[in-house]
Simulated assay, not measured.
Amino acid sequence: MIDHLVYATPHLEATVADLARQGLGTSPGGAHDGLGTRNALADLGGGAYLEVIGPDPDQPEPAQPRPFGIDGLTAPRLVAWAVRVDNLDAAVATARSRGHDPGAARDMARLRGDGLRLAWRLTPMPATVPAVVPFLIAWGDTEHPSLGAARGARLESLTLAHPDPAAVREQLAAVGVTDIAVEPAPAPALHAVLRTPSGPVDLG
């Protein structure tokens, strides 16, 4: 199932304010210490959420580039998405047996604004964005971020685009995704439509 969509931005506060003007409220997430990033979250229903992620001005410049190509962004962009699994190691092994290697799992954690520590495991975040093939994530016993995220929005649709849709569908099937549309396009792209009380919000 879809765990979350990643909407990366060069200016987190400005993007959060712009989304609010469109009718999409978010709640503060937390800082990713050492990565130089911070996020804000919106519940999308069905156990999914939107992560708006950008540079954290309260952290020093990280030793490595920020994830999701944030350092090179000039405008907000939907860059990646994640699929939630119960047993990450088993899901990685299954995907590899089906011809797709999601990469080795790693541990991550952050402190929520109220001090609660969230910990999770995930396969590598994409080196090139936008990434139409999802990374995998498992939350274990940690409270899922969607439970504390701003409510009111719903994920209406997620569409993937790629020059080789057939190859992408094979990779999606390897991680258990068979119900997401993949359209032909000159370059990889992600597009989501979120339904809010004020109307639809398009993210691309």
Rank of each mutant, 00 (worst) to 15 (best):
W139R: 00
G199L: 12
L44Y: 04
V6P: 00
P134H: 09
P188E: 15
L78G: 06
Q22T: 03
M125C: 01
D71E: 15
D202S: 10
A90T: 01
G176F: 04
L172K: 03
A189I: 09
E143W: 04
D43H: 10
E13R: 13
L12M: 14
A174C: 07
V177T: 08
P76W: 08
I53Y: 14
A63L: 11
P145G: 12
H4R: 04
S97N: 07
L41C: 08
A75W: 14
T74R: 14
E61H: 08
A17Q: 11
G30N: 04
R117G: 01
P145T: 06
V193N: 01
A189C: 07
P57G: 03
H191P: 00
P163M: 15
D86V: 11
D101L: 06
A75M: 07
P124C: 12
I70M: 03
L78Y: 14
A63H: 06
G54F: 07
P102R: 09
L147K: 08
T26V: 11
A109T: 06
L41A: 02
G176R: 08
P200R: 15
G45Q: 11
A131I: 10
A75S: 04
L111C: 03
G25P: 00
A14C: 06
V193H: 02
I137R: 06
V133M: 12
A40F: 15
A161D: 05
L35F: 05
A14Y: 11
T94R: 12
A153M: 09
V79N: 00
N39K: 03
E13T: 03
A149S: 04
Q64G: 08
L73W: 08
I137Q: 11
A174L: 03
A14R: 15
Q64V: 11
P67G: 06
L78E: 13
P126H: 13
G204H: 15
G204V: 07
G113M: 10
A138N: 03
G148T: 14
R117D: 09
D179N: 08
P200I: 14
Y7L: 12
D3R: 00
G113Q: 12
A131R: 11
I180Y: 02
G47F: 09
R195P: 00
D141Y: 13
E156P: 10
P186T: 10
V16F: 07
S198H: 15
T15M: 09
I53P: 02
V182L: 13
R106N: 05
P197F: 00
D101G: 00
S157D: 06
G47N: 02
G47R: 01
L5I: 06
F68C: 11
G23Q: 05
A173E: 05
R121E: 09
A119K: 09
P76D: 05
R195V: 07
P28W: 13
A131G: 01
V133E: 14
T178W: 03
L73C: 03
L116M: 03
T15F: 09
P57F: 07
L12F: 13
L158K: 13
D56R: 05
T37V: 12
L88T: 02
P197T: 04
R38D: 00
T159N: 02
A80G: 04
V83L: 12
A127W: 05
P65W: 08
S27D: 07
P134E: 05
A119I: 00
E170I: 06
A153C: 14
G25R: 11
G204I: 03
P188D: 13
L160S: 08
P165F: 14
P62K: 10
L158R: 06
A131D: 07
A95S: 09
A181G: 06
R77C: 07
V85D: 01
H100M: 05
G54N: 01
S97P: 00
